[in-house]
């Protein structure tokens, strides 16, 4: 390596040829744009195939009939659809109060070390695979009860929903303008009333949206239900009994070697996608403008 004295430097000559740099620039921009375009492809393909293969089976009967044995036409997934609503509803009953409470606490009092720890734990918990949560719910509910049950399934779903609800509740509560709080406090209202009667109501729209998003997500989960709620080919509204759910039905029907059932699996997937993605898509579209100041 030669030491070059600064005084001897000749005027800077441009060495990298401009066309090469331009080419690289164009290439990078084109590649990034291509990536974004490629991402649109799977969604289009999935939605397209779902419609192509599932739409034909989407009749009223699908929503009101029970499944039929193999070879017998005209079966539906009424019990699974209702089951999914019950499971997700039950899970919300457990997860929403706890999640909202914890979220409000994080937003209002969670500035310290404990708050940071709760936040971090919730974040890490949201990364636990759903199948592991299913195994835990099996040990927690199924083993002591001695049988598979809707209750066990909803416990698993509730555990999955909890971290999402906590973190989004915290976020929306934080968005409530400081001036609301200050105005209420200045009127002499105690802190707890300010939170309960001013802050939480002001954030309620966002909290409801967050809960519904978590609910929609849980409704699409399959893995944790496989060995908790199991499945049921008949009508059952009892939460201490196995219960059918749409995702598990789709799984069973897709694996089955009968073309008829495979077709129904596609229809079931279409219904599930409409229920889950449409709900969350619409919610996101309508709320997009709200939280961003």
């Amino acid at each position: 390596m030669s030491r070059v004295a600064p005084e001897t430097l000749r005027p800077l000559r441009v060495r990298a040829p401009a066309p090469a740099r331009k080419l690289w620039n164009g290439l990078v921009i084109a590649l990034c744009t291509l990536c974004a375009a490629l991402i649109l492809l799977p969604l289009a393909l999935i939605v397209g195939h779902l419609l192509a293969r599932g739409l034909a089976g989407l009749t009223l009967g699908f929503f009101v009939h029970l499944p039929t044995p193999v070879g017998e036409p005209g079966g539906g997934m009424a019990n699974a659809i209702v089951g999914t609503f019950i499971l997700a509803g039950l899970a919300s009953l457990m997860a929403v109060p706890v999640g909202v409470g914890a979220g409000v606490w994080l937003a209002e009092y969670g500035r310290g070390r404990l708050g940071g720890l709760v936040r971090y734990t919730a974040d890490v918990m949201s990364g636990v695979p759903s199948i592991v949560v299913g195994v835990a719910a099996y040990g927690l509910v199924v083993v002591p009860m001695g049988r598979f049950s809707a209750l066990a399934g909803s416990v698993a779903l509730a555990l999955l929903m909890l971290p999402t609800i906590i973190r989004s509740t915290e976020e929306v509560v934080r968005l409530v303008p400081r001036s609301y709080r200050e105005a209420a406090l200045a009127l002499g209202a105690p802190q707890w009333r300010v939170i309960q009667q001013v802050v939480v109501p002001a954030a309620s729209g966002g909290i409801v949206t967050a809960s519904l998003l978590a609910l929609a997500r849980a409704a699409g989960e399959t893995a944790p239900l496989l060995f908790t709620a199991l499945g049921n080919r008949f009508w059952s509204l009892r939460i201490d009994q196995p219960m059918a759910s749409l995702p598990v039905y789709i799984f069973d029907y897709a694996k089955a070697p009968y073309e008829d059932w495979n077709r129904q699996a596609w229809t079931g997937a279409l219904v599930l996608l409409i229920m889950v993605s449409l709900v969350s898509g619409l919610l996101r579209l309508t709320t997009r403008r709200l939280p961003r100041r």
């Binding site: 030491r3 004295a5 441009v14 060495r15």
Partner: peptide, 11 residues
């Protein structure tokens, strides 16, 4: 601009 030589860069 394509200057790669370590000595020149340092200078």
């Amino acid at each position: 601009l394509g200057v790669r030589d370590r000595g020149e860069l340092e200078a």
